[in-house]
């Protein structure tokens, strides 16, 4: 912008900075608030101050000493990781076929996964509740992993097929001309190029599984497979937790931190994944 003088540019920068600050405040205030609550002492918990007057780690110490929370954390991590791994593998296979191969039923597959992406999950709760009870899957890890895979597959397939379409497939021909077998061409050329897309998809799918509440609420009944979001909502002011606010806040922060770290490190990838899946899909 050579046409603008120095002061003008500075004014523009200032305007943008102001807008940016607004966005940052919008995004972070609720998160900072729950963090603040988690550091408050029981005495100052209800003072309504945005910044704690007295700081304590007591809330964290208390939730980390209960099996109720630790078990839920283990469930959350285990279930989300397994579901992510399976969904990404299945999604990669299907997305490769959609992006690269010609076959009948391709549009049907894309259509079905689109339907599932828009499906009201509550509509599956009653039949799944009943079916899983019959099959003995109710209140088990697989009982949650299955619906998670199902509902994250559309996301995985869209994002990945968008990424796969971007790969210049002429490279595969070039590798063959350079003396590679099809297997070598895939491992040495295509796989390294596909890896970032697969990784991005894994992050998005993990966030989806980590976030789920409805299935975890309705398809579990005990600590055995209850995930953190549900365990949180069950923290009550009983004998152990007189006032659950501090504990809930601490637990909330614990499950929020990994997401924030992922967002910090992989912002570019997440944005690329979400936008490419949405438009180019």
């Amino acid at each position: 912008m050579a046409a603008f003088g120095g002061t003008d540019t500075r004014a523009r920068k200032l305007r943008w900075s102001l807008l940016n600050t607004l966005v940052v405040v919008y995004a972070l205030v609720p998160v900072l608030w729950i963090m603040s609550l988690s550091f408050k002492t029981p005495a100052t918990l209800n003072d309504g101050n945005f910044i704690p007057r007295e700081w304590t780690l007591e809330n964290y110490r208390s939730i980390l000493s209960t099996t109720e929370f630790l078990r839920a954390l283990l469930n959350s991590i285990g279930i989300a990781l397994i579901a992510t791994a399976i969904a990404v593998v299945l999604g990669t296979m299907a997305a490769y076929a959609i992006a690269r191969l010609q076959f009948p039923g391709k549009r049907l597959l894309v259509g079905v996964s689109l339907l599932i992406a828009m499906f009201p999950q509550i509509s599956l709760v009653s039949p799944l509740f009943e079916i899983e009870r019959t099959l003995g899957l109710f209140d088990t890890w697989p009982g949650l992993i299955l619906p998670y895979i199902t509902f994250s597959l559309p996301l995985a397939i869209y994002t990945l097929s968008a990424f796969f379409r971007e790969i210049p497939w002429e490279l595969e021909k070039a590798a063959k001309m350079d003396g590679a077998t099809p297997g070598q061409a895939f491992l040495k050329v295509i796989a390294p190029l596909a890896a970032p897309g697969v990784f991005t998809t894994a992050i998005l799918v993990f966030i989806f599984c980590w976030n789920d509440f409805l299935f975890a609420l309705t398809l579990t009944s005990t600590e055995r497979s209850r995930t953190v979001p549900v365990a949180l909502s069950f923290f009550t002011g009983d004998s152990q937790f007189q006032d659950p606010t501090g504990s809930i806040s601490a637990a909330a922060v614990v499950i929020t931190v990994p997401i924030i770290v992922a967002v910090l490190f992989f912002q570019r990838r997440i944005v690329a994944g979400l936008t490419s899946g949405a438009v180019k899909g």
């Binding site: 021909k173 350079d178 590679a180």
Partner: peptide, 16 residues
């Protein structure tokens, strides 16, 4: 292709 011992230059260059 790999057994023909010929090299190819592509329009897009197809560099890895």
């Amino acid at each position: 292709p790999k057994d023909r011992d010929i090299a190819m230059v592509f329009q897009s260059y197809a560099l890895y």
